[in-house]
Amino acid sequence: MDLTQIRDRIDQLDRQIAALLTERMEITNEVAAYKIEHNLPVYHPEREKQVIEKVSALTKEEYRDALAVIYQCIMDESKKNQEHYIASKK
């Protein structure tokens, strides 16, 4: 397999990842709506910790730290998205 073919595989994965991250962010709007309705804070440290631990356990040991960093970024952006959603409903 040449480099172009390998990069094509990466591009395909990137499209899938982007679609899944978009779906995940849209679901955070549903989470934000629930939090508005039940007067809950955006930040829930225990839930965040559980998600990162759960996802990190799904990969090989050598990738766990990287996945934890990536998911921390995803969680940070999810919180920003929820805050923006909540602010738009006030």
Rank of each mutant, 00 (worst) to 15 (best):
M1Y: 10
D2A: 08
D2I: 10
D2K: 09
D2N: 15
L3T: 13
L3V: 14
T4K: 13
Q5N: 11
I6H: 11
I6E: 08
I6F: 13
R7L: 15
R7P: 00
R7F: 14
D8T: 11
D8A: 15
D8R: 13
I10D: 00
I10R: 05
I10V: 15
Q12P: 00
Q12N: 05
L13R: 02
L13T: 05
D14I: 04
D14S: 05
D14T: 02
D14Q: 06
D14C: 02
Q16S: 12
I17E: 03
A18C: 08
A18G: 02
L20Q: 12
L20S: 04
T22W: 08
T22E: 11
T22F: 06
E23S: 09
R24I: 03
M25N: 05
E26S: 05
E26G: 07
E26W: 00
I27R: 13
I27Y: 14
T28V: 00
T28S: 01
T28Q: 02
T28F: 00
N29F: 11
E30G: 12
V31N: 01
V31A: 04
V31G: 07
A33D: 11
K35Y: 13
I36N: 04
E37M: 12
E37K: 12
E37H: 10
H38I: 01
H38P: 03
L40S: 09
L40T: 07
Y43N: 13
H44V: 07
P45C: 00
P45W: 01
R47D: 07
E48V: 13
E48Y: 09
E48M: 11
E48G: 00
E48R: 15
K49R: 15
K49Y: 06
K49W: 02
K49Q: 14
Q50Y: 04
V51I: 15
V51A: 01
V51L: 14
V51Y: 05
E53Q: 14
K54P: 01
K54I: 07
K54C: 04
V55F: 12
K60T: 04
K60W: 05
E62V: 13
Y63Q: 08
Y63A: 09
R64T: 03
D65G: 06
D65V: 09
D65F: 10
A66R: 08
A66P: 01
A66H: 10
A66S: 12
L67I: 15
L67N: 02
L67C: 01
L67G: 03
A68Q: 04
V69W: 02
V69A: 15
V69K: 12
V69E: 14
V69S: 11
I70Q: 05
I70G: 02
Q72G: 14
Q72F: 10
Q72R: 08
Q72T: 12
M75V: 15
D76M: 10
D76N: 13
D76Q: 12
E77G: 10
E77Q: 14
S78W: 03
S78D: 04
S78M: 09
S78H: 03
K79T: 08
K79D: 06
K80A: 15
K80D: 14
K80C: 12
N81W: 02
Q82A: 07
E83W: 05
E83R: 14
E83M: 14
H84Y: 09
H84C: 06
Y85S: 03
I86L: 05
A87C: 01
S88W: 06
S88H: 08
S88L: 13
K89P: 06
K89M: 15
K89G: 03
K90Y: 09
K90W: 07
K90N: 11
K90E: 09
